[in-house]
Simulated scan of single mutants.
Amino acid sequence: MYEGRDMTELSLMSITDWKDNELGYFHHALQQVTPYLNSEGQTIHREIMDEIQSRGGTQQLEL
């Protein structure tokens, strides 16, 4: 089970400061509801995916 900061707290900080487990968790969660995301949710998900890629991809995340 995820035990980290919630999206409200994370949205107040730069995505580059998110921990790997936070990126992984919210990427998975948003991926599951992709068909239902509005444009803001899609933008957040895209930013998460870009940050994951900049860190070397999902295999490189320390979950």
Rank of each mutant, 00 (worst) to 15 (best):
H45K: 14
Q42F: 06
R5E: 12
M1S: 12
G24Q: 10
E51G: 03
F26I: 05
T16V: 11
S14T: 06
N21E: 15
D17R: 11
L37T: 02
K19G: 04
M7K: 08
T34H: 09
S11V: 00
Q32L: 13
M49I: 09
Y25K: 07
L37K: 01
Q60F: 07
K19N: 08
S54G: 07
E3A: 11
T8E: 14
L23P: 05
L30N: 11
H27C: 05
D17P: 01
I44H: 04
D6H: 00
E62A: 13
E9F: 00
I52H: 00
L61D: 05
H27T: 03
D20Q: 03
Q42K: 15
Q59F: 12
P35T: 03
R5F: 02
G41Y: 01
L30C: 03
L37F: 02
E62D: 13
Y25G: 06
Q53A: 12
L23W: 03
R55C: 09
Q59N: 14
E62F: 05
G4H: 11
E40Q: 15
L12Y: 09
M7P: 01
R46Y: 09
R5Y: 07
G24T: 01
M13F: 01
L63F: 13
Q59K: 14
D50K: 04
P35M: 02
N21M: 02
Q42T: 09
G24N: 14
I52Q: 00
E62Y: 04
I48R: 02
H27D: 04
H27M: 07
L12E: 15
D50W: 02
I15L: 09
Q60N: 14
R55V: 09
N38M: 08
W18E: 04
P35E: 10
G24C: 00
Q31D: 14
H27R: 10
T34P: 03
W18N: 08
T43S: 13
E51K: 00
E3P: 02
D6T: 00
Q53G: 08
G57I: 04
I44Y: 10
H27Y: 12
D50A: 15
T16H: 13
R55S: 08
V33T: 12
E3H: 11
